[in-house]
Simulated scan of single mutants.
Amino acid sequence: RKLGMTQIFTEDGTVVPVTVIEAGPCVVVAKRTVERDGYTAVQLGYLEQKPHRVDRPMMGHFQKSEVTPFKILREFKATPQEVEELREGQEVTVEIFQPGEKVKVTGRSKGRGFQGVMKRHGFAGSRDSHGARYHRTPGSIGQCTFPARVFKGLKMPGHMGNRKVTIRGLEVVEVLPEKNLLLVKGSVPGPRKGVLIIRKEGKE
């Protein structure tokens, strides 16, 4: 979960902008195996939920693994060996990451609503004076009688943000196991308290 951004100083005095992420503790809720599910993965739960807020089918899912209910469930691909090593109810903490490692972070970007082409696509727009009547419009969107249509995929105004975004190659600057915090160099998608998925680079 994204907590916000700050900056830290290295030993030589260089300022490093970092995002503070609360990474766990997560609990293994279920395991997927090739024999039963056709693939191998681990389902992790994060942020405990009050039992009366969970519907009966999901409550049965949690009781089967003998774990408390969670607000957020996410599956992560894993090798058969990794699935065997983990047991249901086991905690997965931030200590699986090491400083200097590269990770990829997936989140949902901030929703911007309906935006024009200048904000959404970075168009330059038209001039503001000297008789100009169209300042922030996209301009021409096609030709004339041929091809007599607008090509698909043309950059136009529309809904912006609130999409799944993955940032790759982010460096882990520091790991704070006692607070379950991860400091990652640079920015990550989403608002404060937005839910993130953190994976090691090169692994799904």
Rank of each mutant, 00 (worst) to 15 (best):
G107Q: 09
Q43E: 02
G45P: 02
L196G: 08
F123D: 06
L176P: 05
K71I: 08
R108V: 15
T10C: 04
R1I: 07
K31P: 04
H121D: 07
Q98I: 11
H121N: 10
G161H: 15
E66Q: 02
E11R: 03
L176C: 11
R199E: 14
Q143N: 04
E101S: 11
C26V: 06
D12H: 04
E11Y: 02
V67Q: 00
K77Y: 12
V42Q: 05
Q90T: 03
K77R: 08
G89Y: 14
P191L: 09
E75W: 12
H121W: 15
K104L: 12
V16I: 13
V165P: 08
K119F: 11
Q143T: 02
F123M: 12
G194C: 13
M160V: 10
V28E: 02
R87P: 08
T68F: 05
R136C: 09
F151H: 11
A41E: 05
P17T: 00
L181R: 10
G107L: 08
G153T: 04
F9E: 07
E171C: 10
G169A: 04
A30I: 02
T137H: 14
K64E: 01
G142W: 09
P189H: 06
V165A: 04
G45D: 00
S140C: 10
G169I: 05
Q49F: 00
E22P: 06
Q98H: 15
K2L: 13
L176G: 03
F70I: 03
E66F: 02
E82K: 13
H61T: 01
D37W: 03
P147I: 01
H121C: 09
V103E: 06
G202T: 08
H159S: 14
K71N: 06
I21G: 04
V173L: 03
F9C: 07
V15W: 03
